[in-house]
Design a protein around this nucleic acid. Structure first.
Lengths: 103, 103
DNA sequence: AACTATACCGGTATTACTATACGACTCCGG
DNA sequence: CCGGAGTCGTATAGTAATACCGGTATAGTT
């Protein structure tokens, strides 16, 4: 097999991501959010419904930006089970992960 | 056409993302980072080289976590061409807390 | 009631792309 | 010489993103 099918864990992770985006959309329409994010309504609907377990990075980023969400906060919520804070890196301070994560 | 080919902009965006990840890896080996991120070396190399313009969300997230990077900061740097960081955003929080634990 | 418009859901179909493995090649430090 | 790291090309199963069709439900209109 060249590429392994997604594990149940990854699928569940996708469902969690979709649920968070759905919740953040609140009472805005799918059409509105999809247009503002530059993606099709079909794609947004599939992501929210968890039918796309591992969407593209910039797709998620666009939706998150439209909904005013932090990607770091989204991730923290998704794997809130095990998320040990790693040691800081040696790059610029701007690229370091924020310590206090809040949505 | 069912799905439009990627635009030159999207490709350039992918190159920018890869360059940032490459820079953040510094002197760590690809093998090390790839293993720590749970992806193959081939994939990491392609992402760093910008040959995967729109990688999966969780793939980028895993690498960023390994390198101790903030996804929000990554995005901000990628779109820094036409979206410079707002003054208010960089001024307020920066005064309140040290951005990272510099090593 | 019947018609219209909007929004959400489900399935199907199709192209573009990701993630991976394999092999060969270069470079560099022991 | 040899082993590890990185590069490059080829190949392929699996997935993402999109469009289209129909169906349901709700709300406004005539």
């Amino acid at each position: 097999m060249v590429r392994e099918p997604l594990t149940e864990e990854q699928i569940e992770r996708g469902r969690a991501l979709g649920a968070l985006l759905r919740q953040a959309r609140a009472d805005r329409t799918m059409v509105d959010v999809a247009r503002a994010s530059g993606i099709s309504v079909e794609t947004l609907r599939k992501i929210e419904g968890g039918r796309i377990p591992t969407p593209a990075f910039f797709t998620v980023a666009a939706v998150a930006a439209t909904l005013d969400l932090s990607l770091d906060a989204l991730l923290a919520r998704i794997d809130s089970a095990d998320a040990p804070a790693p040691v800081a890196a040696t790059l610029g301070p701007a690229l370091l992960r924020p310590r206090g994560i809040a949505v």
